Amino acid sequence: MDPSKAEEPELRHVEKDVLIPKLMREKAKERCSEHVHEFNRCCKDTGFLMVFKCQEENAALKQCLTQHYQDPAFFDECKREYLREKVEYQQTGIPAKNRQQKIPSSM
């Protein structure tokens, strides 16, 4: 048995197939932000004809996103981030999106 795998918790189906891929999509959009911006700009500029006129931008965006979705190292990175957030939630009871550094107003 691989010792590095022994300490890794078992993931539920929903975590492996839904929650981690959702995190991957969010992070991939950040990493492909230039392509997202170009595609959005093209869509806004062309209106209803975007299906025909923005094919090049759409193809570049899809290629960038797919590259990240199919990268096993990216999946592992997102899985580690998900597990870290899960542990923090279990310890604090506060979801990651609500967990922010709050500075007391008396400072």
Rank of each mutant, 00 (worst) to 15 (best):
F52H: 14
E38T: 07
R41S: 04
K44R: 02
N40C: 04
D17M: 09
K22L: 15
F48V: 01
K16V: 09
E26P: 07
D45Y: 06
H35C: 08
K22A: 15
E38I: 06
E30N: 10
K16G: 06
V36H: 04
M50A: 01
K16C: 08
L19G: 11
K44N: 02
N40E: 05
A28S: 11
E15W: 06
N40D: 04
F52I: 15
H37I: 12
K29Y: 12
D45P: 05
E30R: 08
K29F: 12
L49V: 01
A28V: 12
D17C: 12
F39Y: 02
L19A: 12
L49S: 00
D17Y: 15
D17W: 14
R41K: 03
C32M: 07
K22C: 15
V51P: 09
S33C: 09
K44A: 02
K22Y: 15
K44H: 03
S33L: 08
R31G: 11
R41L: 05
E34L: 07
G47S: 01
L49I: 00
F39L: 06
K44P: 01
A28P: 10
E34M: 05
E34C: 07
R41Y: 02
H35P: 09
P21I: 15
E26W: 12
P21D: 15
S33H: 07
D45G: 05
E15K: 06
S33T: 04
D45N: 04
R25S: 11
E30Q: 10
R41A: 04
H37E: 12
K27W: 11
V51C: 05
F48N: 01
H37K: 07
E15N: 08
N40V: 03
N40R: 02
K22E: 15
F39S: 04
V51E: 06
D45V: 05
C43N: 03
M24H: 10
I20Y: 14
H35M: 10
D17K: 11
E15R: 05
E38G: 04
M50K: 00
E26I: 14
K16D: 08
C43F: 01
C42A: 04
F48S: 01
E15G: 10
H35I: 07
V36T: 07
R31F: 07
G47Q: 00
E15L: 09
V51W: 02
M50D: 01
V18E: 11
F52C: 12
E34Q: 06
V51Q: 03
C43E: 06
E34K: 03
E15H: 06
N40K: 02
K22P: 15
N40M: 03
K27D: 12
V51T: 08
V36W: 05
G47P: 01
E26Y: 12
P21L: 14
R41G: 03
R31M: 10
C32G: 07
I20A: 13
E15V: 12
L49F: 00
R25P: 11
G47L: 01
L19Y: 13
H37N: 11
H37D: 13
R31T: 08
H35W: 10
C43Y: 01
R31W: 07
C32F: 02
K16I: 08
L19R: 13
A28K: 08
L23G: 10
